[in-house]
Write a protein that binds this DNA or RNA. Structure first.
Lengths: 260, 260
DNA sequence: CATGACTGCGTATGTCATACGCTTTAATGC
DNA sequence: GCATTAAAGCGTATGACATACGCAGTCATG
């Protein structure tokens, strides 16, 4: 009970940054009181990133925003990269509501996928924070839990459930990155994303004109009028993935009943 | 004939970096001869990245590797980021063989997906070069062409073909990133990727023990013995995606015949 | 009340990308 | 053939930046 962190095996080695993220850092009993908290530092970093982009997040900027010296931040965070990592985990925000009792896996997983996309849209800078490895930060684990919840009882094997979650979240990140980069590049030259898209096709047409690009030319000839919304393109990819998963789930279910 | 670049509309505005990538830069007629070529600079950058990782690629490192002054590189490349962009495009290498006459779309697209993965494995640093936008560099366009070739005659609409290509290449990059990051993190602490994986699950078990993570606990209890190879996990995701596309292609084909 | 862990943080170091401008080179216009 | 002038190589300078180190002040504990 003296240990507010619950009972961890004392001999268990946890990387510094992970321990920090989970709030498992010791009572700093002896010295002067801290003037800040890790949460404040992270929140300030997020505010800077949100306002001026990730490239504006420097240790000195965050520090001065907090009214402290640059080096003081290193009392809260071992490295800038750890700060970014914590920022990303926090800024991702809470996952959408978990699969309700009686709800099918597909609507639940769809909601989960759209939650991922929404998070990356809300805080576009997150996609510039490199993924350090498998999900280990508290919020990432929470998201993972909800993802697995959606897949309970589908008959998918454990490794398949993991791959599925990875596939869907990877798609969300991929898609957010592609469209986000495009939008940012457009904004940098003062165009709307639509204009930038038009421009892209014009450039591509010019560049591929002299060369052997039959499939691209065919596509450009056909595309013309039909213009999809971003949302429809996102749904297209997601629906393909979910259709693929559904096919497997159904096959499994059929095999299962056969065996019974 | 005096124009070796072919006949581009003279009034057409192409961004500097794109023009550079396509070799559309003017006869530098007046001054002294260049001692290097853009290709040499790019190749040297790639060599450095391959040897010591992308963080070792600095303008001064590349320059000294070439035996020239740092600032000389700026006669070949407007910005470091443009150099990285060119490096990535070149290092990706040639796409796998295009769809053969009579070959189905699925084997062709599978080969294309695996080519993407192989490229990212051959030059792992590529995944740290941010994607600047839609594919516009020469090699990227070539890859895109081959991707569209695979989808010819599937009945997919143009925007759907684009989304499909994006979906598959995004998956390859996503997957290469996830597994690559894991492998690098493991190597940094001197472990094999397998050991790192074991370690991850142990850490996750400890961290989630006190909290409400039923789906994660369920998964960890089941997983135990069964160990998938990386290759099998990659195939799982790819097969799901392709199954989803196949379902759509078949549905289209059925609808088409109905209408005839 | 003294000890010493811990605080904030000033200073210093080393690394980078890149702006600027000088000197040398060589193709072009006369 | 000679003057002109664009372009090449590159030394130097600038301004960010992350972070190592160490010091002086603080405060719970023995």
């Amino acid at each position: 009970m003296g240990d507010p962190d619950g009972d961890l095996p004392d001999d268990f080695e946890l990387p510094e940054n992970v321990a920090l993220a989970w709030g498992l850092r010791d009572r700093p009993s002896r010295g002067p009181k801290r003037s800040l908290s890790l949460e404040q530092v992270v929140a300030t970093g997020i505010r800077v990133a949100q306002a001026d982009g990730i490239s504006a997040v420097s240790m000195s900027r965050v520090a001065s925003e907090l009214g402290v010296g640059t080096m003081s931040l290193y009392r809260y965070v071992p490295t800038k990269h750890d700060l970014l990592d914590l920022m990303a985990d926090t800024a991702y925000g809470p996952p959408p509501s978990p699969r309700a009792p009686g709800e099918g896996w597909r609507p639940a997983l769809t909601r989960w996928a759209e939650g991922n996309l929404a998070a990356l849209r809300r805080q576009p800078w997150i996609r510039h924070v490199p993924i350090g490895g498998p999900p280990i930060n508290p919020n990432a684990v929470r998201w993972m839990e909800y993802g697995f919840l959606a897949l309970r009882g589908t008959g998918l094997r454990p490794t398949e459930r993991i791959s599925t979650i990875l596939l869907v979240s990877g798609y969300a990140r991929s898609w957010a990155t592609t469209t986000g980069d495009l939008a940012e590049a457009a904004a940098r030259t003062g165009q709307t994303p639509d204009e930038a898209g038009q421009r892209y096709w014009r450039q591509l047409a010019v560049l591929t004109a002299p060369g052997p690009y039959p499939a691209i030319h065919e596509l450009m000839a056909e595309v013309g009028e039909e213009e999809e919304t971003d949302e429809a393109e996102w749904r297209f990819g997601l629906d393909r993935i979910l259709d693929g998963i559904e096919a497997l789930v159904k096959a499994r279910a059929a095999g299962q009943t056969q065996h019974q």
